[in-house]
Structures are given as C-alpha cells and as structure tokens.
Design a protein around this nucleic acid. Sequence first.
DNA 1: CAGGTTCCTGCGAACGCTTGCACAGTTTGC
DNA 2: GCAAACTGTGCAAGCGTTCGCAGGAACCTG
Lengths: 333, 333
Amino acid sequence: MSGPASLKSIAEEAGVSVSTVSRAFTRPELIGEQTRTEILAIAERVGYQPNRSARGLVTGRTTTLGLLVPDIANPFFPPLVRAAEDRAYERGYGVMLMDTDEHADREKALIRDLSGRVDGLVLCSPRSPAGQIRELATQRPLVCVNRSISGVTSVCCSTRDGLGQLVQHLRSLGHRKIVYLAGPASSWSDRERRNSVRRQAAKSGMQVDVLGPYPATFEGGVLAGDAVADSAATAAVAFDDVVALGAIHRLSERGLRVPDQISVSGCDDIFFASMTLPTLTTVATPIAEAGRAAIDLLIDALDSPKEHRIQEITLSGAFVARGSTGRMARRTR
Amino acid sequence: MSGPASLKSIAEEAGVSVSTVSRAFTRPELIGEQTRTEILAIAERVGYQPNRSARGLVTGRTTTLGLLVPDIANPFFPPLVRAAEDRAYERGYGVMLMDTDEHADREKALIRDLSGRVDGLVLCSPRSPAGQIRELATQRPLVCVNRSISGVTSVCCSTRDGLGQLVQHLRSLGHRKIVYLAGPASSWSDRERRNSVRRQAAKSGMQVDVLGPYPATFEGGVLAGDAVADSAATAAVAFDDVVALGAIHRLSERGLRVPDQISVSGCDDIFFASMTLPTLTTVATPIAEAGRAAIDLLIDALDSPKEHRIQEITLSGAFVARGSTGRMARRTR
DNA sequence: CAGGTTCCTGCGAACGCTTGCACAGTTTGC
DNA sequence: GCAAACTGTGCAAGCGTTCGCAGGAACCTG
C-alpha cells in the first residue's frame, strides 16, 4: 500500500463502498453492526487517520480554533491558554495560538490570516476598536475574554468583589490613605479595577489617589514604587501582580520594608505571587476558568448555530491574603 | 455573491480561467504581468482568502506545525512558544500548541491526533522512549528541543559552560562545600546539569554533594531548602529557577538569610528570576533562540526534503550573577 | 400476499484548489 | 522564411471526504 490509509483502501479491503466506510466513522448508527466492527478493525490495524483537509473541504469545518493573546510570555496568560487548549482538545478541537504583541494592527493581520484556517476565534484582551470586533463577530463565531463589547459574546474576569474585600482588609489593618497604581489607560481591566477600589474606599471612608498610568511591566512597577515612596499613602493597590512586584522591589531598594512600613497588593494571582518574599496579597483572577468557558461558548455556538445567542459571562475573583500587606505603621521618611 | 470569494468567482469577474487565477498567487512568474495585477486587484477588493482545506487536499500540506510542550503554565516554556510562533508565522506557518502534561501516554496520543493536521512536529523535552521518537521521525519531519536522540534532529540548550562559570563564581566567593539540588531523574537536562557542576567542582577542588531528586516545582524547592539547611554546604546550585526559589523561600522561613548565610543559584533565567528578592543568580537558557532554531530546522526540512539531513544544534547559556549568591559566611546553626 | 416500512448499502456529485498537458500566438535562430 | 523555442493561457483530472438520493432486502401489517 502506498501512502497513508484512506477510506478507499479500507473500503477495498473490507469489500464495501467508500461511503460505508465513511459512515462507519461519522454516522455509526446508520450502518450494520457487523459491517461497522469489521471496518473499525481494519482501520485500527492500518492506523487510519482521516484526512482533515478533505473532510474540511466538504464540511467547511476545520475543527480548529484560533486563540489570540497579547503575549504568551506575560505570566497572566499561560493558565488561560493551558485550560483553553485542554478543553478544546477534550471536545475534539485543536487550537492555533498567536501573539498579537499587544498591537491592534498585528491583531488585525493575524485575525485575517487566521480566519481561513479556523472555525472560530477567542480573542483575549483584544486591542482592536469595538466596532471592528463587532463586525468580525458577525462573520464567524467569536468570543472575547476580558473585554466586554455589546453584541459580542464575552467572558470577563471581574475583580470587583475581590478588590472590595481587599480594600476592607486594608482598612481593618488601619490604612486610611491608599493609592491605586493604574495600568494601561486603554485597558478594560484597569478601568474596572480602578473603579472598584474607588467605590469601596469611598464606602469605607478611605482616601484613595490614583498614580500612573504605568506600563503593566516590572519596570512599570519600579516606577510606581518610586511614586508610592513619595506619596503619603500607607498602602498601594497595584493594577496587577507584576506591577506590584516591581513596586515592592523598588520600595525595598529604597529601604522601605514591605509590609512593615508599607503594604502593597497586586491583582491576578499569577504563578509567582505565592513564591515571592514577601508573598503577595492579591485578588485571584479565575483566568483558567475563563479560558475553559470561552472555548465552551465558542464550540457551543459552532455546534448549534441556530439556537446561539450572545452571552456575557462574568467570573469573579477572590481576595487572597498573603504577606505583602500588614498593619499600618507610621511612615518615617 | 454567496459565500466567501473563491478562485472561481475571481476568475469569472476577471474573465480568465480558474487555473490562471490560481497561478497568479502560487506561480506568479508564469502569467502575464497585466493579467496578474488585474487578478490581484480583484482578489484584494473582494478580500479573497484561499481555502486551506482545498489547497491542503491537493498539495498534501497544511502549512501548520505542531508544538508539544510539557506544560505551557511552566514559566520555562512561554518564551520558547512565543519565539517559535513568531518565527513560524514569519515563514508562513501556523502553530498548533498542545500540552502533554509531562505524561508519555498523553504525549503519544497527542502526537497521533496531531499528525494528521500538521506538516511537522516540534517536541519539547519529550518524555517518550527514544525508540518511539526515532520511529516517529522517520514518518514525518520532527525536531526535538532539549532532548538529544541519535538520528533525530534536535536543538538543545546547554548550560555546561554557564554552570562552570557559576561554580567558579561560587569558588571565588569562598565556597568550598556546595550541593546540587537535583531535578527529575528522567530529565535529560538534569543529567547534563549535574555532570557540569560535578566536573567544574572537581576541577576547582570543591566538594559537591547531590541532594534529591526533587520535583521541579516550588514545593520541590521547599523540600530541597530543608535539605540544604540540614547540610553543611554554604552554597546550593538548584536544578532550575523554580526549585531555587522554593529553596530560598524555605531557607528564609527557617531564618537563614540568602545570600548572607547561604548562597543559592538557579538555572534557566525565567521571567521572574530578576524580580525576586533577592534577585536570582542563575544560568540563562537561550530558550527563545531554541524555539526559533527548531522552527527553522523544521521548515527547512519541509521545504527541501531532499537535501535534508539530521542536525544536532547546541545553544549555550550564559552565567548571570545576581543577588542570591554572596561571599561565604560561617554557618551558625 | 400486496403494499408499506425500515434498515442497510452503493452511486455519484460536489467541495476549491493545483498541476500536467495541450495549444495558440509570438519571438528567436540560422 | 521556416522550424524551433518560448510565453501565456485554458482544459480537465484528481486530491479524500461527505451526503443526498436511490434501491434492494427483510420485515411488518391487515
């Protein structure tokens, strides 16, 4: 036999037609018990793997999903990617991963290139204008993660409740003057987080200043650390864990002890948040769950396009108390 | 026009045959200048995207590569994945990513499922028996990362020189008794690292004990930290950065200051190595470079199967001095 | 036992593209 | 000025599947 096994080669060996072999795999209930088991046995023996291209040509489906993330090297995303892949695989789909580099143009180009090879798209923290994404969503199944756009299915991780608890936690430790270290101005998450902190602080009678925006990087956090040191605040709530880590790093360099002299907290609960010294008080983002949910929504939409409707799912993150926050101390500078 | 643009619809509009349109894209030198520009203009206007399934059916190629990693959530891999994806995209390929969960069985299943949908495979730190991988490599282009198997193209990150420099560095700081905190026994990298440390220590007249093996996790590092505390060594070289971080964490918990009382170093230079307190002395693994190289080798093999030959590339990692190693102090316990 | 069902199977078209071959028209070589 | 070579294009086969339709066999039903 030359080349890999095909329906045809199996059909010849089994003495049936190609269609019967095809149906043995795709519509098993349609064919005779005995015929089917025989076909399956032969297929197994010759290691038959259906030709996805041929199948895709006629069905118009690739059983592949596209997953766009800003940057897989950003520690926030790997758990999402991991969960999304696992779920997709469980449900019979493969995942093509691409990095947009946080750049709307590249995002656009990737989506264009990708759309010919996937059945649907998961867009994580997309940077493209809402109108463009809405337009895209009319052309093919699409779900956004961590960006809410009216008319587009999305799953967002809300840290509102968790941040509320965090602010309460700071209050109970005696803090009255805190700062929020803002992330990128264009970020949906930053807006949500900033507002959550403000709201709870107001409720608790605490004063909160916003510092930044800072890049959502360690270096951004270093910058923020300087600003915190220069402020009168006794606690800082950072946009995310990486920024918090940078801030803590800088504060330590400047001789300010965390949490003895100043408290710092992050957001996301990335892999390393529990491994640093001090360990990082933070609000966990259920990012893996979000990845799974996004894939489920996408495949559901693919499987039953008729009954599909726009959904907006919100997943809540929980407050995680660790070592980088403590009782307020009088700052001595 | 119903459905997406096809060669046929473009051909009709341009008043030429389907073959001519096809050639305008794939063999532009074969057709008339004027015809070509006209076709390209129409294609551009209608947003033509070739149907990959149809193309794949006749060419037998998917222009997709498979990338298997043990666990994308392990901070060692994201830079590799990122670089591999970027390079593949540059060269016109997409990448399907899958996680083996460090499990040989799952690895095998994934490879089987994947092989129908990709042109070639990059296997990172594969756990499967060498014979199985060698067999696989005869069936389709394949390159291994961080595992050297005779007869299989591979790219490995060697930390030998870097670890040699690290051991020298420890010696010059006065250390004479060190320990190596071993990683998983089945790991190719662990063997290489252990031997490198041993060799250099012997050369430098230092005593080195091997502790472990420990799981290559933070918790593994915590375990290792206890063992280090109980040993007489003044410096520890950990299998990787995560283990080092765990060890430092545990040592600090036990009141041993790093690096004042004991030095600890890691390996890999992951994202966080420079962000911890203390910052982590380590040996950088050129993992992104390895990802790029692997993709290049794979696509080269795909593009010119005739002149292809087995290659084994080794990339060297450099020693990075940071804050977790320091002058030897008399241990007081 | 005629007519209707049900169950299983085969036939053949179609999916969108690439590519070997043929051919008409033009250029080149001597 | 005629054969040879070259250039640009079209024809049609074929890639491996899926699936609508048709039909034969077996089984009911009254």
